[in-house]
Computed example of a mutant assay.
Amino acid sequence: MIELDETDRRILRALVEDATQSASALGRKLGLSQPAVWRRIKRLHETGVIKGQRLDLDREKLGFGVSVFLGVKLATKGRVSLDDFERAVSAIPEVQSVEHILGVYDYRLRVVARDISDFERVLRRRIMTLPGVGDVEANVLLSEERRPGPI
């Protein structure tokens, strides 16, 4: 674990809110020079604290009005079935995330679809036919509020 001072934390909180801010804008906001902010951000990247930057797309505006979390329990366990399942599920474009979890289910998937009938098609034709799939539980997302974790 890397040691972060309060300035590093303030920079990270500001970047979590808006990662497109320039070093000079952040410097003005935090009372630091542009080079000082740039050096700190560079160090946070180099040490792996900042892993990358992503776009946060509005799925509904792109035509994907339904998000579903699927709990997937594999029918067979073993290294081969895990690898086969992960490889196959990662190739499905509607599957936005694949998480290997501990609990009742082996995996949690986030699946997007245009509507419920489109989701049913993805579930029946793509997900249920994957290697090793046993039990599946679907939870339709009603609303979402993103809250960044503590820094």
Rank of each mutant, 00 (worst) to 15 (best):
K61L: 14
T47W: 00
R126E: 15
R147I: 14
I50N: 06
V112F: 04
I11V: 14
V89W: 02
P93R: 07
F69Y: 14
R146L: 15
V80F: 00
E6Q: 15
G103R: 05
R114F: 02
E94N: 13
S24T: 13
P131A: 09
R79Y: 01
I116L: 14
V16L: 15
E6G: 09
L30Q: 05
V133C: 10
T129W: 00
R125Q: 15
F64T: 03
E94H: 04
L26T: 12
R110I: 01
D83L: 09
A14T: 10
L109S: 03
I11W: 02
G65M: 08
G78D: 01
K61Q: 09
K61E: 10
T20W: 00
T7I: 14
L109M: 05
G27R: 08
R9L: 13
H45D: 04
K73Q: 10
L57M: 13
P150D: 09
E3D: 10
K73L: 11
A36K: 13
D58F: 03
G132M: 07
E99D: 04
L142Q: 09
E46H: 06
K42Y: 03
E60M: 07
S67L: 10
L55V: 14
D106C: 03
S81H: 03
V140C: 07
E60G: 12
R9H: 02
R28P: 00
E60Q: 07
P150L: 06
R110W: 00
E86Y: 00
P35H: 08
L4T: 12
R54H: 01
I50P: 07
V37D: 03
S22A: 11
R87L: 04
L102A: 11
Y105F: 11
G52A: 08
I11T: 05
F85I: 02
V111T: 06
D8W: 03
G65L: 12
D5R: 06
R110E: 04
P131Q: 03
V80R: 14
R9C: 01
V89Q: 05
I11N: 05
N139G: 04
E17H: 04
S97H: 00
G71V: 01
L26D: 04
A88V: 02
E94K: 02
I101N: 01
P131D: 01
I11P: 10
V140F: 12
L26E: 04
T7K: 13
E3Q: 15
L55A: 15
S81W: 02
T76N: 07
D58H: 08
S117W: 01
E46I: 07
A36G: 10
S90L: 07
L102M: 03
T20A: 14
I127R: 12
V37Q: 06
I50F: 06
K42T: 12
P35K: 08
R43I: 06
D5E: 07
K61V: 02
Q53S: 06
L130M: 09
D8C: 10
R10D: 05
R121Q: 12
E3G: 06
A36E: 12
